[in-house]
Simulated assay, not measured.
Amino acid sequence: MSATTEGMRFSHVYLLQPELLPDSKRMRHRLGIAITSLGGPDFLQQLGQHIEREHGIPVHNARYKDYWPNIVQKFELRDVLDLITVVFNFISDTNRERLQHKRNNFIFSCRRIFEEEQVRYKIDDRGGVRFSVDVEFEAHRTSTILTISSKRYTAVRTLYEEAYLHLDKSPPDAKSALRSSFNATECLFRLMFSNAHQLSASEVQKHLEPLVNRLYDGQKPAINLAQKLVASLKDWIDGAHFYRHEPGSEEPVQPPLELAIYMLSEASGHIRWLAKLDEMNS
């Protein structure tokens, strides 16, 4: 995480498709309860007024604890994530040690909520909310889901989203994430080529290479580049097979998390390109 963005509000760092950002009603409800533990009616009333000034949205009945879970439910998601930073900075105490203790307790509670509700956010030590991996990784997910949003790719999208759910577990299930990303890619490949038995280097060479040559016919630089991408896909497939459990073989151990994240990022690129080729071929 960059030091220059630490403690900044979520919406000041990221602005992606809001409907694709991880959300949870239970997370919102629990955040509302966590806020009410910070002080009494006067504190909550002042906090509500402060939020109205910071967010530009009305907060009614803020002095009553029972209203806070519902208040947070009505916020836009960007405001929910900004809220953690705003509340963190609003907490005050004349004693420096008590102030730090109060803020640390609030951050601890919010981190626990994010972890247990399996939403892909983390919180820095100054109350700034970030994606649990990084913005580029999340951008890959958002872009890929948009690419495979049509009904034709429903099964592909389900498998692809499963990969991220496995990474959301505590601890992350990197092996299942890798496998789901492979299954999503294979599902799309077999959707494109109904005669393909599986996603393998030989099947890619048999089915995908001729399609690429045909679609980019007459564009020598494009064909040369596309064939390099096909070769990259073959290497990705071979790499993924190290973590696929074959009958009669020993179950592989968990891959290092950074390798699983890289493989999932690569899967996103492969899926987007294959979906575009599928569209071009239709």
Rank of each mutant, 00 (worst) to 15 (best):
L77P: 09
Y164W: 14
N89W: 06
V204C: 11
K175W: 05
H55T: 09
C187S: 15
P221D: 13
F10K: 03
L16W: 08
N105R: 15
L229V: 13
P69H: 02
E76T: 05
Q198F: 09
S24K: 04
Q17V: 11
A196W: 02
N195Y: 09
K25P: 03
R152V: 15
I123C: 02
Q46K: 14
I84V: 15
F108I: 06
L191F: 10
P172S: 01
L31M: 14
L208P: 06
A139T: 13
A184F: 00
L15D: 15
V129W: 08
V80A: 03
P255R: 04
H55L: 14
I145G: 00
F193Y: 14
A163Q: 09
G239R: 03
F242G: 02
R98P: 00
T4L: 13
L199V: 10
P255G: 00
L199R: 06
I123F: 02
Y153V: 11
I145N: 05
H166S: 11
I57M: 06
E203L: 06
R96W: 05
G48W: 00
G39R: 01
R179A: 05
M263V: 09
F75Y: 09
G218P: 05
L191N: 10
V253P: 10
K276R: 12
R272A: 11
F90Q: 08
K169W: 04
M8L: 12
E136S: 10
S180N: 13
E186F: 01
V129A: 07
L31N: 01
K228W: 08
L259P: 02
A260D: 04
R130Y: 15
V80G: 06
R244I: 10
V119S: 04
V135K: 11
Q17F: 09
S181I: 04
S132T: 09
C110E: 11
L277R: 09
F189S: 00
G32H: 05
W236N: 07
T36F: 03
Y153E: 08
K151F: 12
K74H: 14
L21Y: 07
G39I: 03
F106E: 00
E266K: 15
G218N: 03
I51W: 03
S176L: 12
F108G: 01
R190E: 09
L31Y: 01
A222K: 13
D278W: 02
I145M: 07
V13S: 06
R111I: 04
V156C: 10
F75I: 01
S180M: 10
R120A: 13
R53T: 15
R272I: 08
A201F: 07
V13I: 15
E6H: 10
R103L: 02
V13F: 08
P221K: 00
D168M: 10
I237L: 03
K228E: 15
S92D: 12
S268I: 06
V72T: 04
S194T: 14
P256K: 07
F88R: 02
Q205A: 12
L259V: 14
L274W: 07
V230W: 00
G7I: 08
R9N: 08
C187E: 15
E54K: 12
H12D: 15
L274V: 07
I33Y: 01
A155M: 12
T144P: 03
G269N: 14
I261L: 15
I71F: 01
L215D: 02
Y64S: 08
G269Y: 11
D79Y: 08
S92K: 14
H245D: 07
D134Y: 00
G48K: 01
L211P: 03
L264N: 07
I71D: 01
S170N: 11
L259T: 11
G39D: 03
N105F: 06
R78N: 11
